[in-house]
Design a protein around this nucleic acid. Sequence first.
DNA 1: CGCTAACCGAGACGGTACGTCTAGTCTTATG
DNA 2: CATAAGACTAGACGTACCGTCTCGGTTAGCG
Lengths: 212, 212, 212, 212
Amino acid sequence: MVRDPSSAGQEEQDSPVRSEPRPGRGRRPAQQVRSQILAAADRLLRSEGMAGFSIERVAALAGASKMTIYKWWPTKGVLAFEAYAASVDDVLTMPDTGDIEADLTANVTTFVRLLRDTAAGRVMAELIGAAQTDPQLAATFRRVYLVPRRAVGIAALQVARQRGQIRSDVDLEVLSDQLWGACMYRLMMQHEPLTEHLAAELVRNLLTGVRP
Amino acid sequence: MVRDPSSAGQEEQDSPVRSEPRPGRGRRPAQQVRSQILAAADRLLRSEGMAGFSIERVAALAGASKMTIYKWWPTKGVLAFEAYAASVDDVLTMPDTGDIEADLTANVTTFVRLLRDTAAGRVMAELIGAAQTDPQLAATFRRVYLVPRRAVGIAALQVARQRGQIRSDVDLEVLSDQLWGACMYRLMMQHEPLTEHLAAELVRNLLTGVRP
Amino acid sequence: MVRDPSSAGQEEQDSPVRSEPRPGRGRRPAQQVRSQILAAADRLLRSEGMAGFSIERVAALAGASKMTIYKWWPTKGVLAFEAYAASVDDVLTMPDTGDIEADLTANVTTFVRLLRDTAAGRVMAELIGAAQTDPQLAATFRRVYLVPRRAVGIAALQVARQRGQIRSDVDLEVLSDQLWGACMYRLMMQHEPLTEHLAAELVRNLLTGVRP
Amino acid sequence: MVRDPSSAGQEEQDSPVRSEPRPGRGRRPAQQVRSQILAAADRLLRSEGMAGFSIERVAALAGASKMTIYKWWPTKGVLAFEAYAASVDDVLTMPDTGDIEADLTANVTTFVRLLRDTAAGRVMAELIGAAQTDPQLAATFRRVYLVPRRAVGIAALQVARQRGQIRSDVDLEVLSDQLWGACMYRLMMQHEPLTEHLAAELVRNLLTGVRP
DNA sequence: CGCTAACCGAGACGGTACGTCTAGTCTTATG
DNA sequence: CATAAGACTAGACGTACCGTCTCGGTTAGCG
C-alpha cells in the first residue's frame, strides 16, 4: 500500500571528491535543483517535524539558495507538504468485494494503521496544524491531498448506494467525514488511540446504526 | 471597543506628587498581573489570531515583563489557550428531553453554530493547529477543554444507553468522535461548510444507520 | 475556567549533559558587549578593509547578535569608524617653537607618515570613501574626527597670524585645506606618493609663495 | 563647456518594421548594446547615485543581460565611471592670457562651480569613494580622468614657470594638488562650502604666499 | 546564399549580507 | 524578593545583488 518513502533520496549526491571544475555556482537544471530541495525538505521534515523545519535549513541541507526556494514555494508549509507528498505514494485503495461493510472496514483499518504506524501520521497532523495559519498550505493540502482521497471514498459509497446498500437520502459527504474525519480527529487530538477496533466501530455504527 | 488597557495606561507621567522617575516597576499583586496578561493575550488572539500572536506583543500590550509571562506559562500556545479559555464560558449544555436524537441534534447544532458563527471556531482551530508542534499546549488543551466537554457528551450517551436507546455494545468514545469530532474535522479542513444540515445528518446517520 | 497553568511545565526534560549554566544567552553588561563588538570590528577592519567588512561578520567575530549591533550603530560605516576611532589615539600634536614654517612642516610630515606608514591611511581612505554614500558616517566622521583635528591646525595658524607671521586677510580655513587636505587628496587618489618632500613643499609654497 | 548627453538618447525602441514578438533576443551589434548599457547606467547613476547603482538594475534598464555587462566591465564601479565619462565632455579649458593668477583663478573657479552646481560633483565624489575599495575603478579613474586633467593644469603651470612667473624650484605636482586637490577635498568632506572665494584664495595664497 | 558559430536576452543558480523579528535567558533597579 | 524593563544570543525571516552559468534564439559572416 504505502510505498517506500525512502526512494526520494535517489539522486544521491556528494561524491566526496568533487572533482568537477565548478561545484555550485551558475545555473543548474531546474528539475535537479527542485528534487534536491524536495529531498532535503523531506529529510528534515521527517527528522525534526514542522518544529525545526525552516527554509533556511532546507536551503543549507539541499545546498541551494534561499532565493531559489522562495521562487518556487510560497511558504514553508507548502514546501513541507510538497516535499512530503513527493516522497510518498500512499495509495489507499478501496477494495470492492460487494460487501460494503467489509470494504469500508478494510480501508479505514489501513488508514488507521497508516496514521498510527508510519511517519505519515505525525507529518500530516503537523501539516494540517500549520495550515491553520497558512492559507496557502491549507489550499494546497485540500487540492492535492484531501479532495482526491475523499473522492475515492465517496465514489465507493456512491457505488454502494446504487447497489441499494445505503439509503438514497444519505449525504455521503457527511458520511465520509464520520469515517475518515473521525480518524483524523483522533490523530490530531490524541485523546484516544488509533486502533483497529476504532476502524471497525466507525463503520459498524454508521451502517447498522446505534439503536438497538 | 473593549478597552481598559487598564493599568497599562498607568505610566502616569508627571503626577506631580510622584517624583520618582520609574513609574511601574516593583512588585505587584500576582493576580492583578496575571489577569492583565490574560486580558491582553485574549485581545491579541482575537484580533490577530495565532499568527501575529507572540509573547513579546502580549507583554507590551499588558505592560508586563516577558520574564513574568515565562514564569507562568511554558509556551505561547498555552498562554493563548488559557487567555481564550478564561474569556469564554461557552457551556454547551446537553438537553435531556428523553428523545436522544432530538437532544443530540440540538447539542451538535449549537456546537456547529458556535464553531461557525463566533470567534471560537477560528481560535480553536488555530490552537489545535499550534498544539501539533507544542506538546504542552496539546496536553493542556486535552485536560482543560477536550476531556470535560467530551465527558458531557458521553455522559448523555450513557444515559441514553441505560434507557435502551443505544445498543449496549456500542463504544461511546467512538460514537462521540463521529459526532463532535467530525465537526472539528470540517472546522479544520474547511473542505465543506459547517451547517445545520450537517449536525442533523451526523446524528441521524448514527442513530438510524445508513442501510435502507 | 482554567486552572493551574503551572502543572503544564511538568514534563521536564533536562538533558543531563548540559550542566553548564548556559554559555552565551541572556543579558550581559552593555559595556562589555560594546567593547567586544568594537574590538572585533576593529580587527576585521584592519585585516580586510571596508570590503569584507560586514555587520554579519562582526557579529560572528564578536560572538554578538546582529540585533545588538543594529541597536547601537546605525550603519556599518559608523560602526567601522567608531571601532577604528576607539582603537587609536593618534594625537597629532602641533609643536609651537615660534617658527611657523618649521612647526607646520613638522606636523604635516608626521601626518604624511601616519597616512603612508600605518594602517590609518588605508582605513581612513576607505571610511571617507564609504561616507560618500553613507550620510550618517559622513556626519560622524566630520564631527568626531575632522572638526577637532582641523581645529588644532587652524588654532596654530591663528597664533601665527597674531604674531604677524601670516597676513591678516588670509582665510585660514582655505589655508588648512591646502595643507592637510592636499595630503588627503593624495591618499585617496594615489596618483603621487606621500613623501616628506611633499610635506615640506606644501608648507613652503604657501608661506613663501611660488612667485620668484 | 560641458554637455552633450547626445548619444545617450539613442535607444530607438520600436522601429515599426520589426513585428516579431521577441524584441531583443539574438545577436545585436556590439556598439548598439554597449551604448544602451552606458546610457542606462548613466541614467541610473544620475538618478540614484552609487547607492542604488547595481549591475542588476542597469541590465534591467538597458534590456541587456548581466553576462554582457560582465564581459565588458570588470566591476560596477568601472561601469558607472565609463557611463558617466561617456555622457559628459567637460573640457575644463585653461585660458592663457599671460596673467597666471587670472588664468588659474578662472580655471579653478570654473572647476569649483562644476563640482558645486552640476551633477558632476556628487557623481565624482561617489566614484572616488567607490574607488577606495575598487582598485580597477581607481586605476581607470586615474588613467582616464585624473591624469589627463592634471596634465592640462600642470602644462599651464610649466608655461608660467618658463615665463618666469613661478620659481623654478617649485614642484608643480604638489602645487597642482594644492589647487584642484584642495577643491576635491572640500567636495568629499563637505566641511566647508565650495565657493568662488575659495577658488580665488587657493590661487592667491600660493602665488603671493601667506606671509606679510 | 545558406549554414554555422559567435553572440545576445533572459534569468536561474549558489552565495553573502542586508535589516527585522521573535524566542527565550539573564541582569539591573525598583518598590 | 517578585517585578518591570529591557539587553542580550540565537537564528529565521524575506529581499537584494553579486558573479557564474545554461538555455534558446538570432544574426553575421564564412564558405
